[in-house]
Write a protein that binds this DNA or RNA. Structure first.
Lengths: 195, 195
DNA sequence: GTCTATATAAAGATAGAC
DNA sequence: GTCTATCTTTATATAGAC
């Protein structure tokens, strides 16, 4: 093992994951992470000598890995129908904390070193875009969708679904998943009436 | 005048607007705002006695007012065609700093008092959704769009366009405006081929 | 209106005892 | 591995001179 794969270290990573996913990089303090992991904040440096920034990058990698696995599994379990696949992707994304890639790009990453920024950018693309691009490519080959720029489409879909996290379900009067399904239907069929 | 409408106060509000729009609430310090306004940070309390939180709310109200006016003007100047109207809305949104409503809802607002939260939520809706809902309603009456839930559609459109702020134009190889136009076309016509 | 000086709190990080 | 204690910095906020 290349790192101290202790049980306490795992607790630290889980605690940091919950807090970073919820509030981003800046607002989370090492004392909060330590408290949630049952440790004094100074003990974190034993498990993650690189400090807060290194901890954030490692935790984001874990989040990306889970998203990539979760999205791929959801898409695989949805069967061959594109609409059901996109529903499944939405269900997965809405089951997780918001990724808020705009915040990540414009706020969190500003505080990190360039190499860390590059690492996170690549991870986000592989986790959130690639699985969707694959099913879109298959649908494109079947002639079900016309558009060729699948990166653009997958990004637009993810952005639209994630933006539902800004909507209060109480105010909207329906669940985010219901809203996501209608928006996906619009993306598939278009706002303009079909003849 | 109910407040000290001095020239220095205006400089403070402009400086705060730029910084809050760029980084959100937490990461911005009063010292940064003061420096940009040419004032010691302690002098800010003369112009905004309520401190950082009050300053943020007042500044966000100004941002909302500008968005509402800018969006309405852009839509009006676009003429009667829905596609051109949506293009104009995208051009406006992409000309301004990201609003990042997910961050606002899940991070910034957590640090504010409930009354301030309510005020900001209402302002965001009136600024970003209402102008779009109006043109969508007109198009709906002309029979150009089938979907009835116009709040959902306008929210999805805004979220999709704003999510382009997470995309590097250098990586994508095209401008955000070009991407926005293609996504709007997809929303209008659908991914599925029209016969 | 603006400043200096300061109070108070909390952040990231390190040293060293156990 | 974990702690206490501390260093250093920086944040919001206030008091009071000018």
């Amino acid at each position: 093992m290349e790192r101290s794969q202790s049980e306490a270290r795992e607790r630290v990573l889980v605690a940091a994951e919950q807090l970073f996913a919820q509030k981003g990089y800046g607002p989370v303090t090492l004392r909060q992470i330590g408290a949630r992991a049952g440790l004094n904040h100074s003990s974190l440096y034993h498990h993650v000598p690189g400090g807060k920034a290194d901890l954030f990058v490692e935790v984001m990698e874990r989040i990306y890995a889970r998203h990539r696995a979760g999205l791929t599994a959801a898409l695989g379990a949805a069967g061959p129908d594109l609409r059901r696949q996109l529903y499944a992707a939405a269900r997965w994304l809405l089951s997780q904390p918001p990724m808020d890639l705009v915040r990540l790009e414009h706020i969190d990453m500003v505080e990190l070193a360039p190499a860390q920024v590059q690492q996170l950018s690549n991870g986000a693309y592989a986790a959130l875009q690639l699985p969707l691009v694959e099913v879109l490519a298959a649908a494109h080959e079947r002639g079900e969708i016309a558009e060729e720029d699948l990166d653009l489409i997958s990004g637009g879909l993810v952005g639209m679904i994630e933006s539902l996290f800004a909507v209060s379900e109480a105010v909207a009067g329906k669940s985010r998943m219901m809203m996501a399904e209608r928006l996906i239907d619009v993306m598939l069929n278009g706002l303009r009436p079909r003849l």
